[in-house]
């Protein structure tokens, strides 16, 4: 890809802020898309973490029966495999139902649907690795379930949780189909949750479809930035989990 890739000038204008990158204009950068993508991915990560953590905790055998846990895992796996375009369409239905326009919030909702199963399943996998003896020791000291969960299980699961969150973040920031209808596209950096927002994957998608060579070059630049972000996240998650897993009791 890089032989045709971005020229230096493309890099320089990537970070020119504010009114920047109309998909049809010859000048301009993609700062709006970078900021937009980060907003979307952070928002959706936060939301799906807050929703997902209780689900992952509940999958322990203290809370629900093994059978229900298996069923929940299965339905989460099915959700994981669901095409993101379906989430996009469903997110759009929700948005229409709530009376929202294409906006940052709509995008966050659609992305949350996409990221929730990834996050829950990866956190669940590491929680399951917690040695039962550790939990039993905690119960023997008279701790309640929630205290054990937060003080023993959470600490054990922390490195895995970081990996899970980053995995979901990486999936979310690169996904185009789920935000295709829900975020809109704009040249500006969003100021509130109800503003439309640009994003890197959609920037690539729209820019490469134009016949203007300058804009197409911007698509390569956007793709490179997106790729770097995703690879960086992958490397960071590997390093972090390696680093923190030293403190785990096996």
């Amino acid at each position: 890809m890089w032989c045709r890739g971005p020229r230096l000038s493309t890099y320089q204008c990537s970070f020119k802020p504010r009114k920047a990158a109309t998909t049809s204009e010859k000048r301009g950068g993609v700062a709006n898309a970078i900021v937009g993508s980060l907003c979307l991915a952070f928002g959706a990560s936060l939301l799906s973490f807050l929703l997902g953590l209780p689900i992952a905790f509940a999958l322990q055998k203290e809370y629900i029966s093994r059978r229900l846990a298996q069923i929940t895992r299965l339905s989460l796996d099915i959700l994981w495999g669901t095409p993101s375009i379906v989430y996009g369409a469903f997110g759009f239905i929700i948005m229409v139902y709530l009376g929202l326009r294409a906006s940052l919030l709509g995008g966050i909702i659609a992305l949350t649907l996409l990221m929730l199963p990834i996050m829950v399943r990866s956190i669940d996998e590491v929680i399951r690795m917690t040695p039962p003896e550790l939990k039993e020791a905690s119960y023997a000291m008279g701790a309640t379930r929630i205290e054990t969960t937060f003080k023993v299980v959470l600490r054990q699961a922390l490195p895995g949780m970081i990996t899970g969150v980053l995995l979901a973040f990486g999936r979310g920031i690169g996904d185009a189909a789920s935000i295709l209808f829900t975020t809109g596209y704009t040249d500006y950096i969003p100021r509130s949750l109800f503003d439309p927002v640009a994003s890197l994957p959609l920037a690539v998608f729209f820019q490469v479809a134009t016949p203007i060579p300058e804009v197409q070059q911007r698509a390569y630049a956007s793709a490179l930035i997106l790729l770097i972000i995703v690879l960086l996240i992958s490397v960071v998650s590997r390093l972090l989990s390696h680093r923190y897993s030293r403190h785990i009791i096996r």
Binding site: P54, I55, A58, S75, T82, F90, V120, T144, I146, E147
Partner: peptide, 29 residues
Amino acid sequence: QIKDRLSAKSMILAVAFANSLVLLVGLGL
């Protein structure tokens, strides 16, 4: 103990949400 009960209830609610999500998406469509 109250805290424990409350958290358990809310977690079960979260599980119900996760399970209904598949159906919800299908039903909506």
